[in-house]
C-alpha cells in the first residue's frame, strides 16, 4: 500500500481521529475478564465493611434469636431456681409431695406450670437458634448458645423427670 503525503495534513488527521473515536467507543462495552475471580475478596470486604444486606439480615435474625434465647434462659434460670430450691436437701420428701400434687391436678401445680413455661420458651428459642445456625453455620457465638440451651434443657428435663412431669412435655433431649 502506498500513501502520498497529504497536502493538507489535517485531512488525514481528521480521518484518523474519526476512526480512532469509533474504535474507542467500541471498547466501551468490551469487557476484560479479570485474571482471577475477584468475588471472594469482594465478599470478604463486604463482611468487614459492615455492609448492609444479607449479613444485616443475619444480624437481624441474630438479634431476634438472641432476644428469644435470652428470654428463654431467664425463664429457664427461674424455673431451675425454683426447682433447685424446691427439692433442696430434702428432695426425697419433696418429690413425693410433687407427685401427689401432679396426681391430684396434672399439669396445674405451680412448679410444673413454671417448668412447662420454661420448656416451651426453651423449645422456641432452640427452633430459632437452629434456624439462625442454618443461616450462619460458622457463627461461634450462636453455636455456643445452642450448646448452652441444649445443656440447660437437659437439666430442666431431668428435674422435671424427678418431679414427675416429664411425660407432660415429651420432646427432645
Amino acid at each position: 500500500m502506498k500513501h502520498d503525503l497529504p497536502r493538507d495534513p489535517s485531512a488525514h488527521d481528521d480521518a484518523f481521529v474519526g476512526r480512532l473515536s469509533a474504535l474507542a467507543a467500541a471498547l466501551r462495552e468490551d469487557g476484560v475478564e479479570p485474571a482471577r475471580d475477584l468475588w471472594p475478596d469482594i465478599e470478604r470486604a463486604l463482611d468487614t465493611t459492615g455492609a448492609t444486606g444479607r449479613r444485616a439480615t443475619r444480624y437481624k435474625a441474630a438479634r431476634t434469636w438472641t432476644g428469644a434465647a435470652l428470654a428463654a434462659t431467664v425463664l429457664l434460670a427461674i424455673g431451675l431456681g425454683v426447682a433447685d430450691l424446691r427439692p433442696g436437701p430434702d428432695a426425697r420428701h419433696a418429690i413425693p409431695v410433687a407427685r401427689d400434687t401432679t396426681t391430684l391436678q396434672p399439669g396445674v401445680s405451680a412448679g410444673s406450670a413454671t417448668a412447662r413455661q420454661g420448656l416451651h420458651a426453651v423449645d422456641q428459642a432452640l427452633n430459632e437458634l437452629q434456624a439462625a445456625l442454618r443461616q450462619s453455620p460458622n457463627d461461634p457465638d450462636l453455636s455456643r448458645l445452642v450448646m448452652l440451651i441444649h445443656h440447660s434443657r437437659g437439666r430442666l428435663l431431668r428435674l422435671q423427670a424427678e418431679g414427675g412431669v416429664r411425660d407432660a412435655h415429651g420432646g427432645r433431649s
Binding site: G31, V32, E33, L38, W39, G53, R54, R55, A56, T57
Partner: peptide, 19 residues
C-alpha cells in the same frame, strides 16, 4: 440483602467494570 443476587450482578458486569 440477597448476597447471591449481588454476586450475580458481579458475574454479569465484572468484565465491563474490570475493563
Amino acid at each position: 440483602g440477597d448476597r447471591d443476587a449481588f454476586e450475580q450482578i458481579y458475574r454479569r458486569h465484572a468484565a465491563r467494570v474490570h475493563g
